[in-house]
Design a protein around this nucleic acid. Sequence first.
DNA 1: ATCTGTAATGTAATCGATTACATTTTCAGT
DNA 2: ACTGAAAATGTAATCGATTACATTACAGAT
Lengths: 337, 337
Amino acid sequence: MVKMVDVARLANVSTATVSRVLRNPESVKEHTRLKVLNSIEELNYQPNVLARHFRRNKTNTILVIVPNIANTIFSQIVRGIEATASEKNFRVLLGNTNRDVEKEYDFLNLLHQRQVDGLILLSGKIDHDILSELKDKYPLVLASEYVDDVEIATVCIDNIKSSFEATEHLIKQGHKRIGHISGPMNSLLSFDRLSGYNQALKEYHIDESKDLIREGDFSYETGYQQMCELLILPEPPTAVFAANDEMAMGAINASKKKGLSVPKDLAVVGFDNIRFSSIFDPGVTTIAQPAVEMGNIAMELLLQKLDDPDFENKRITLKSELIIRESCGSNIVETSQ
Amino acid sequence: MVKMVDVARLANVSTATVSRVLRNPESVKEHTRLKVLNSIEELNYQPNVLARHFRRNKTNTILVIVPNIANTIFSQIVRGIEATASEKNFRVLLGNTNRDVEKEYDFLNLLHQRQVDGLILLSGKIDHDILSELKDKYPLVLASEYVDDVEIATVCIDNIKSSFEATEHLIKQGHKRIGHISGPMNSLLSFDRLSGYNQALKEYHIDESKDLIREGDFSYETGYQQMCELLILPEPPTAVFAANDEMAMGAINASKKKGLSVPKDLAVVGFDNIRFSSIFDPGVTTIAQPAVEMGNIAMELLLQKLDDPDFENKRITLKSELIIRESCGSNIVETSQ
DNA sequence: ATCTGTAATGTAATCGATTACATTTTCAGT
DNA sequence: ACTGAAAATGTAATCGATTACATTACAGAT
């Protein structure tokens, strides 16, 4: 393996100069720089990244902890993160947890071991105290998820507002009995989506009913089960707002199974606008998060933190959008291609 | 940061002994070992991974190149890889290419730079010559995809056989005009799925027709488009075998759009058994690959290669399974929950 | 008690880039 | 031409674990 001394010898300079050419080209005279670059070329020199990491105690790698990479909302955010990261010559290590908190903690070891320089969390499950300790010790950004109390750099949408809009849309279709299948209640995001739903009901003077609110865990299966529960109520809902698209699809399939037709007998709205929402039949009306952009911004925030650990922990709120498809019975209908 | 010398000092031994306790415990006397372990505990010592990587010129990290991580078939394989990897204390770096060959080559730099110790490829797009050079220079395993000519450790299923079965299933339902929407023809896997289809037609004395074979690229969109093409033929097919589930769903939706009913007017079989195939309406009949197991085995093969670069490059072929759902009009019908 | 061979432990070089500090070069200003 | 400051380059220490080689401890044989 060619190393820096070899280049230095050939170019007739010191290793310090070679190193500077690579990391601080402007601090080296043009003439010398060209000599060095030529030698690098001639020897086909590639710096030893591991030595560099060791010496600088940095890896140019960041960790992204994802609850479920197979969910397109997360893979899109990751795509955004990667795009911005690779521009700045950063690598992205994916920590897929399948919604298992233990695995999250496992991945955090990578931070402690300095195998990664920073962290983007797409999951809000980690304990508050640990989170608040983390954000003081390492560059940390939350994306999509968020927490209160602790001040952490965050990119997200306004979940209360978008859930309000989703529910309002159902109300405007004339529905009065509207169910909600929520996400797991240990996450603030789930809580806010529920709040948006509640606020919409209140705003339009619709009585709340505890029976109509069911807790799921963002999986298709819980959407299916909870919908079954809702359907055996003495007075079942005529519409359902599910806290994500997978659960919405679960709810739709449960209703179909019971012989109901969506949207005629039951209107459904989801959340996230995952790829299959437009492929599914009926197309799922949903709230679209600007996922790729969210990833871009999350990475930009992290880069700033990496550069200056004291950089302000701002929260950036992006706009979401209601996408109307067939599942809610609106007359405005998108094609499913 | 506590380092090895600190532990050594406290335990009253040399750093060599501390290092041995960590890497070769059996070479250290029980008495000494305990002293050292106690000191490690007491000081809460964590070895500097970067220094270790540098010194050993190994990172205990492997790279997995994936065409599209949002596709559940790939995320399942990755899950299998990760499970086996983490047992052996290996990290998995995910290289998602979105089917872009350029990005594949980018990721290969990680190998050259020794940032990863080995590679599992889930894509068969890389140039033969490069592949054959790679496999001599680095531990390399192919999973799901495979190539001929070059001898590389591989885990896969028998795509010809399973496609034969899929097509045969349609034939046994009485279909005589069966279309095929293939994968991109630069991949051997697509080619084999086409071969299986052709062999089944031949076996059952059904005339082939070039018109009925359309090339897609494994995306929903091409499935949709190619099905549209098939439907405007003077004599359109009554059944279609698509080389993956996404294209099968595209085909189904295209037919629905034209007012056809699946499976009554058109029977469809897909490939891969992605998660959404059972959620889709109608449930997609498909070939299930043992994806997680495939990942496990791929990682095991790679570990063997990492251990001994001259380890035999065997190809392991796993069993696939035909999963019958509603889309093919069989009377044996699975529920879609 | 002495010798021998093996097991256990220690000493110190090593991996290769980075960088604090030292030295030399350059050049503007007189 | 000379001075002094700034720019360019060089010297050598440094990061922290690993490991080849050297030394010591110890058990068993004589």
